[in-house]
Design a binder for these strands. Structure first.
Lengths: 118, 118
DNA sequence: GTAACTGGTTACAAAAAGGTAATTACTTAC
DNA sequence: GTAAGTAATTACCTTTTTGTAACCAGTTAC
């Protein structure tokens, strides 16, 4: 899968994957969260995918992983300083989602046709 | 692929796919563009994928397709009124991408380790 | 001694997405 | 009559992503 030449593309590939933005949203709104808490907040994600995403975000300097050497282990995740830069993106997405929901937008259907508009 | 339960998820699936955000960026910065112009601005996209994306964005009320009945045909695409709501998202992405580039961020590598930081 | 707890990993199968290349339609210019 | 031009469509194959299910480690509580 080659780059598409757009300078924003690497960022997009990093933060917009399935579940990824949701994880960022949770870490942004809830702050530090443990692995199990993230699993609980996203009931349909599998441990495999959550691990993949967290490792990827860690590699990219967006999320910080902290492990306490206890038994059983306690691992928590939080946004790094740079990761918090993403709040503008996440909030913009949220704003539009809320706006469009109010307008009755539905995926693959668009906006309801108003007789006297569009 | 089931929904992940997040209210922002449908919007994410719609506007963050491969090429999709790039198309939105181009329509946002350049205004109305013809099919062939879009192809020219994204040299690596195929006609198939571009058509898929444009149809999808049209279905979702984000892009408006206008066809002139000439031979050969002239088809152009522009953002709808609601599609223009996405400018906050697109600009936020651009802002972060530029910022992170300045900081030396690289995909899968993160930010360069500064001796006296992090 | 065995189950529970947390945070994973691994192998495998299924599904979705993406890319390639050939083909179409219609008319005008050569 | 044949090529050019625009905007696609179609069939097919490959790659990527996603999900499922089983398994592991180390210690404590029962």
């Amino acid at each position: 899968m080659a780059s598409n030449g757009c300078p924003v593309d690497p960022l997009l590939r990093t933060i917009t994957g399935r579940w990824t933005t949701h994880i960022l949203w949770l870490l942004y709104t809830e702050g530090e969260l443990r692995f199990g808490e993230l699993m609980g907040l996203m009931p349909d994600i599998s441990a495999k995918v959550l691990t993949d995403r967290l490792r990827m975000l860690e590699r990219n300097g967006i999320v910080l992983r902290t492990q306490k050497q206890t038994i059983p282990p306690q691992v928590s995740y939080e946004l790094t300083k740079q990761g918090q830069d993403l709040h503008v993106v996440v909030r913009a997405l949220n704003t539009v989602a809320v706006e469009w929901q109010a307008l009755g937008w539905e995926p693959d259907k668009g906006f309801p046709a108003l007789e006297a508009a569009e």
